[in-house]
Design a protein around this nucleic acid. Structure first.
Lengths: 141, 141
DNA sequence: TGCAAAGTGAAGCCATGGCTATATGGTTTC
DNA sequence: GAAACCATATAGCCATGGCTTCACTTTGCA
């Protein structure tokens, strides 16, 4: 019984980690689109692709998925724009990224490594952990 | 130029985060196999599958990949065993997992959330960041 | 105004990591 | 020793996220 639920728990952890990485792409793209719109007033598929380090078709496919999920809208040969939901996600992601980087810096991680690792880490930080991070940063001053 | 290299840098970060997750599976499986051998003297595909929360064929496919990468060996209808390289990886993963959990706990993350998030986070912690984590834990006492 | 370059879209390929279903090899038990 | 049951292997399917190639708009400039 104990052993059984222990196994289930661990399997659930793995499963959760796996599904988290499925969200990661959406989060990265929404944040990138938000960045591009802020900086250049629009987000073209080509720009998204270059910034993400992938080819145009790959970016286009990702945009299609964002549209399917209701996070973005676009018209053929026009730029990509975020829905309210997409913009909210981008904002959440940005805040979380900032917090993760700040925590790493506070722990003594060099700035470049902090930025580098944060890109991978941020998608696996739960709400609970994020809240703890914020508390920690507040205590640190 | 500045803008160009900035783009390249960011794209590289994303690429690195993507390849990191390709290692994640290997790491999880080697660690799991190591655990099973320690506890039960052998690692059967069925056990691996149950522990990882996947079906047997999925686990078998993963084991095939481990063998291809030189991390594990197995003979048909016999258990799976780690090579020296695989065992070294398992050990590294175990140590890193422990450190990540300890850091989260030190930051005030609840124990269950720490374990849960560590499963996803650990694969994105670079050597540099890990070293900083260790220093931090030493300073904390 | 028209044409070339650049951006976009569509189709089709590959690898990975899931799954189900089916066949076959081991083991245990009677 | 044979049968039944469990473990393993194999085959084939799906979705995702990369890629290349090719066709078609847009756009900008001569």
């Amino acid at each position: 019984m104990t052993e059984d639920s222990a196994q289930t728990d661990q399997a659930e952890r793995f499963n959760q980690a796996r599904t988290a990485q499925s969200m990661a792409l959406l989060e990265d793209y929404t944040e990138m689109i938000d960045d591009l719109i802020s900086e250049h007033g629009e987000a073209r598929v080509t720009d998204i692709a270059r910034q993400m380090g992938v080819t145009h078709p790959t970016a286009a496919k990702a945009v299609a998925r964002l549209k399917r999920e209701g996070l973005a809208v676009s018209r053929p040969y026009r730029g990509v724009f975020l829905t309210d939901e997409g913009a909210a996600m981008a904002e959440r992601v940005r805040v979380r990224h900032r917090i993760v980087v700040d925590v790493l810096l506070a722990l003594g991680v060099p700035a470049d490594a902090a930025e580098l690792d944060a890109e991978g880490l941020e998608h696996h930080v739960s709400e609970t952990t994020l809240a703890a991070f914020e508390d920690f940063l507040r205590r640190q001053g």
